[in-house]
Simulated scan of single mutants.
Amino acid sequence: MHQPIAVFDAGIGSYAIVAEIHKRLPQQDIVYFADRASFPYGSKGREELLAVMQRTLRFLEGYHPSAIVIASNAPSIMVLDDLRQNTLVPLFGVYPPIEEALATSNSGKVGIMGVQSLIESSLLKQFITHHAPQPGNVSLINASSMVELVENGAFLFDPEATQKAVSSFMDDVVSQYPDIDTLTLSSTHLPWLRSFFEAAQPGCRLLDPAESIVSNLGDGTQGTGQIQGLVTESEVYNVETFRRMLQQFGIDIPLEVVSVP
């Protein structure tokens, strides 16, 4: 591979960004790393998350990437600045599109859906303060249970139960925040559930930041356009389920099972 762009998350969530890069930069080589052994990032405190990120970056640097995309909102908000001090590889993160959400909203009330550690992070609250003229109009919604529906494959293998769970979740959101009309999908897992969210609340706007992430990468580097898949596994999140999810989506890429020292 020639100076690939490495993209990673704690599971299948980041493949949507891989696909967007491949679409926009068809000759760009890509390393797609699904670190299922570390799922979920959202339950980890700042220090543990920082240690996981540092270990992952050291591993990916071995592929001589031209850039690394941390395709997860929680570490992007919580530890990205620290990580940039310890690597020469350009790092890119994923952030809630607050300004776009507020500009899109008719009510002026929006919500950020993300994993628990992101929603509870003081750094996210600082981020909101910098990007929202009235921070009180931005509500924080813990969607960790929705992320689990993606990583365990339920959204593919049991769509009826998934719709029931998503509809119940969205009913709770609307009950608690009746004025919100725009939500950000601030976990890279959540866009996989877009159709379920839309069925549950068809009048709610949903924003996915994937396209803006890819545009920040510039022109990339000329390679052969190959995608190399890497995956770790745990007892709960095994490789076989991951393979089945990729097959269900018609994704046919080389997949290597790895361990991160």
Rank of each mutant, 00 (worst) to 15 (best):
Y177T: 06
M146N: 08
S212W: 02
P96K: 10
G203M: 07
G45C: 05
Y63R: 13
D252V: 13
F33R: 01
S186C: 10
R55C: 08
E160Q: 14
D82V: 01
S139N: 08
L183E: 12
A71V: 05
A143M: 01
E240A: 09
P75H: 08
I227K: 08
G42N: 04
L183C: 14
L149H: 07
I12H: 02
K164V: 08
A161N: 14
S167E: 15
S144P: 01
I251E: 11
A6C: 10
P4E: 07
W192S: 00
M146W: 04
T188Y: 05
Y177G: 02
P4R: 08
D171Q: 15
Q176H: 15
Y63G: 06
P26K: 12
S76K: 05
S121P: 11
Q126L: 11
A16N: 11
I12L: 11
G45M: 05
K109H: 15
V150P: 04
L206M: 15
S107Y: 12
R24Y: 00
S121T: 05
S14M: 02
P90T: 07
L217V: 01
Q134Y: 10
V257P: 08
G114R: 07
G136V: 02
G136T: 05
N152T: 07
G93S: 09
D82M: 04
Q3F: 12
E48V: 13
D29R: 02
I77K: 01
I5E: 11
H2N: 15
D252G: 06
Q247P: 06
G13Q: 09
G13A: 02
F242Y: 15
E151D: 12
V214A: 05
L217R: 01
A10E: 00
I21D: 04
G13I: 02
D82Y: 03
I17M: 01
S167T: 15
D82I: 00
G42L: 03
P159K: 07
A103W: 03
G111S: 11
G218Y: 08
G250Q: 10
L149A: 03
L118P: 04
Y41N: 00
E100C: 07
V115L: 10
M78E: 15
D35P: 04
G250A: 13
V52M: 07
V89K: 00
E160C: 13
P254V: 14
V69W: 06
F197P: 08
S38M: 11
P261Q: 12
I17G: 03
P90M: 09
G62D: 05
L25T: 02
L156Y: 12
Q248P: 01
Q27H: 10
G223W: 00
Y95A: 05
R36P: 00
L49V: 10
F39R: 04
E240G: 02
E256G: 08
F127E: 00
N216S: 15
W192H: 12
T188H: 07
E211G: 13
F39W: 03
E211T: 15
H189I: 04
V115Q: 03
A6L: 01
P135T: 10
R244F: 00
K23G: 04
R58E: 06
F92A: 00
F33A: 12
K164N: 09
A71Y: 02
N73D: 06
A210M: 03
H130M: 10
F127Y: 15
M53F: 03
N238P: 03
T104M: 14
Y15G: 05
G229S: 06
I141E: 10
G229H: 02
F92E: 07
S121K: 12
P90Y: 10
V147A: 09
L49C: 11
A74Q: 11
L230M: 08
G136W: 08
